[in-house]
Amino acid sequence: MTSLACEPTAAVRLRPGRLVTAQFARLLLVIFGSGLSMYLLTSVVPLYLAASGAVALVAEVTPAARRREALGVYGVVVGLPAALGLPLGVYLTGVVGFETLFVLAAVSSLAGLAVLPGGPACVTDEEHHVKVLGGLRGSGLLMPAGVFAAVTLAAGISVTFLPLASQDHKLVAAALLVQAVTAPGARWVAGWLGDRIGPRRLLVPALALAALGAGALAFVGTPAAVLGGAALFGIGFGAAQNLTLAIMYDRSPRSRYGQVSALWNLAYDGGWGTGAILFGFVVAGIGYPTAFALTAAIVALAIGPAVRGVKSA
């Protein structure tokens, strides 16, 4: 029998030549530049948030009576780029091409720098230099930070593993879009209501919605459950973002706003990353439906501390 090994034919036989051509070099520069622009900031942004307080400044420059609504508006602006950019980027590649899209992305990044000189100054005086984990006992900050970490744990799991758990890519895309759109809206509404009735009264319902939404993913084979769960979780997750942060600011003096911002971001990033890592080990042993149900149970357990925190306030 004639061998079918990978013997190159005359038509495709490799010919020696220069490896890094002009076109290949340009491609490598694009890849290097885009990657460097992201990774330069990946480790620096958390440090900047801790030092300047990118959320504490919201509390500094807005009226105290409308602080929760201001945090909600901030949340909408933070969430809109994901809700708009993810689907819009894919669409625009077929309309204007990759090169034009890269230019648009660069312009949108630089546009923010134009207004930076007139923005609020970062907090740098010694009074505001508080350790992130210092003096937490009796501060009232541990409950909202821990509760929020439980919700972000579920958020990291849904975004990371829903595409792997479902074979219906259109359904997954729709669910993630629903979650991305509902979260900023809920964050603003929660802030608006929080200014009027207080954030503590809204935290337990927000956690309940997040738990129900996370639990719906256990029925990952049912489109209605996945879409409905994404909507419920997006509402609960967005509301929890605003409410926990507002509670933490309400319980802290102005001199600790930087610590509040850093601690809240630590709960956000820590919960998100921990959920994505641990879920991978859990799902290997019990499967996606049971693992999603377990995630919902973790969020539901956070309702207990939230209830006790509301009663003791």
Rank of each mutant, 00 (worst) to 15 (best):
A300K: 08
H129R: 15
L232G: 01
L263N: 11
P16W: 13
Y48Q: 06
G234N: 04
K311D: 01
Y39W: 12
A313V: 02
D125K: 10
S158D: 06
L49M: 15
T9F: 01
F279N: 11
I303Q: 01
A150E: 11
A267S: 15
L142A: 11
L113H: 00
G234S: 03
R13G: 10
A293L: 14
G140V: 04
A291R: 05
V307Q: 03
Y268D: 07
G118K: 02
V90E: 13
P46Q: 10
V103E: 04
V310L: 12
I303T: 02
S255A: 15
V95T: 10
L40R: 07
S3G: 02
A56Q: 10
A83V: 05
G35W: 13
L232Y: 04
G185N: 06
L101K: 06
A154G: 12
A173C: 01
P305Q: 08
A186R: 01
R256N: 09
G112V: 00
P16H: 15
A145K: 05
I303V: 14
L84R: 06
T222Q: 14
A54E: 07
L176P: 00
P81G: 12
V132F: 03
Y288K: 09
L209S: 08
L49K: 08
L40G: 05
K170C: 00
Q167K: 12
L47A: 12
T152Q: 12
F237K: 04
V95I: 13
V103W: 08
L263V: 01
S37N: 08
P184C: 07
L217D: 04
R67N: 04
L36R: 06
G229D: 05
S43F: 15
L202Q: 08
T2M: 10
V220I: 15
D250R: 05
Y48H: 05
A218D: 03
V55S: 08
V310Y: 11
A173S: 12
I157T: 09
F237D: 00
F281R: 15
A297Q: 07
D168V: 05
S37D: 04
Q259Y: 11
V103G: 03
T222W: 15
F98P: 00
M248F: 01
I298R: 09
A231H: 00
G17P: 03
L110A: 09
V226T: 08
L176A: 07
G221T: 12
M38G: 08
S166I: 05
L171E: 04
G35A: 12
